[in-house]
Simulated scan of single mutants.
Amino acid sequence: MAVHWFPGHMHKALKEIKEAMGQIDILIEVLDARIPYSSENPEIARVRGDTPCLKILNKYDLADPEVTATWQAHLEAERGVKTLTTSNDNPANSKQIIELIRSVCAHKDVPGKSIKAMITGIPNVGKSTLINLLADRIIAKTGNEPAVTKSQQRINLGGGVVLFDTPGVLWPKVENPNSSYRLAASGAVKNTAMEYDDVGFFAADYLIKAYPELMKERFKLEELPNTEVEFLEAAAKKRGAIMAGGRVNLHKICEVLLTELQSGKLGRITLETPPMIEQEKLAMAEEAARKAAAKEKRKQKFKQGSLTPDKKDRKEKRTEKREAQSQRMKKRRS
């Protein structure tokens, strides 16, 4: 599944982020703790350069805590990166962000100077809520759907820290197809940009393998089916998602599954792990190499043309004729 949702204000915001990066002392990137890789904007990573980065794994209360700890260690292996976890049910934890900003930018934490921090994050990751907690007042508009913030603003957090807020920004093309599904499953894109059935099948396939006990308990199943289709059919019967004639309403049960996943009713779930992502990156590299080889083959075939021996012979004769004419012209001039 490909996510086709890149409104004009996102293109503008991404351009402004690139232009402002040179003025920033530290970048704060808010990630969804359930999908740390898939919610990380590769465009931001490309323009960040050596700017220190604080990655906030928000919605920690919805994510698998053991997997989150693994992600933190994985992310902090990158030079200049620190991590913190935050959640809406633990706002006090967000205050540690200010302390960490001052620690990382200690050379700027002097009277008369301001530490300039920029905060970014994909839509619906909880960035606006976090800003309001940091500022200790309502600054950023919040909403339970993507793309609420649509313009940049500067916020004085006090204590010499100035925060540059940016709209939630996706990127034009999600290279990893599994990331597209995870972004949709977590609610990072509007419902109108995804197919519930398609995303629901992806989520069901992952959940019955990674969190079988949670799925059995939530949908009151004595035995967990082996396939996502069978699981969705069994879950639909338990939830009454049945149409006329006793047919299973797959669209309805997929909608129920995704809604409960996003709200945390299924339990604390993380949709990707570092080892999974490394495998997917290898698969993507192999696919890219295959496509590049196929493209080069087509290019060479186009250059050579589909010349039969007869056509090749005629082409050589035309070349010889042009060369002979060129020699005769040179002799006449001399």
Rank of each mutant, 00 (worst) to 15 (best):
V3W: 00
H4A: 14
H4Y: 09
W5C: 14
F6M: 10
H11F: 12
Q23K: 12
A33R: 03
Y37W: 14
Y37H: 11
S39E: 06
N41P: 04
G49A: 11
G49T: 11
D50R: 06
D50F: 04
C53V: 08
K55P: 01
N58L: 03
L62S: 00
D64K: 05
D64E: 15
P65E: 15
E66A: 13
T68Q: 11
T70F: 05
E76H: 12
E78F: 08
R79G: 09
N88M: 08
K95T: 14
I98W: 13
E99D: 14
L100F: 13
I101F: 09
R102Q: 13
S103F: 14
H107Y: 13
K108N: 14
D109M: 12
V110F: 11
P111I: 09
S114K: 06
G121N: 01
N124T: 06
V125W: 00
K127L: 02
K127Y: 02
I131T: 06
L133M: 07
L133W: 05
A135H: 10
G143F: 00
G143C: 02
N144T: 02
K150S: 02
I155F: 07
G160N: 06
F164W: 08
V174I: 13
P177D: 15
N178M: 10
S179A: 14
S179L: 02
L183P: 02
G187F: 00
M194W: 01
D197R: 10
Y206P: 06
L207E: 01
Y211A: 12
Y211W: 12
L214A: 08
M215T: 04
P225H: 07
T227D: 15
E230F: 02
L232D: 07
E233M: 12
R239C: 03
G245F: 03
R247L: 10
L250Y: 09
I253L: 04
Q262D: 08
K265D: 13
G267Y: 03
G267D: 04
T270A: 09
L271H: 02
E272C: 07
I277E: 14
M284Y: 15
K291S: 05
K295Q: 04
G305Y: 03
S306W: 00
L307Q: 09
P309N: 12
K311F: 01
D313L: 15
K315N: 14
E316C: 07
E316Q: 13
E323Y: 12
A324Q: 15
R333M: 13
R333E: 15
S334I: 15
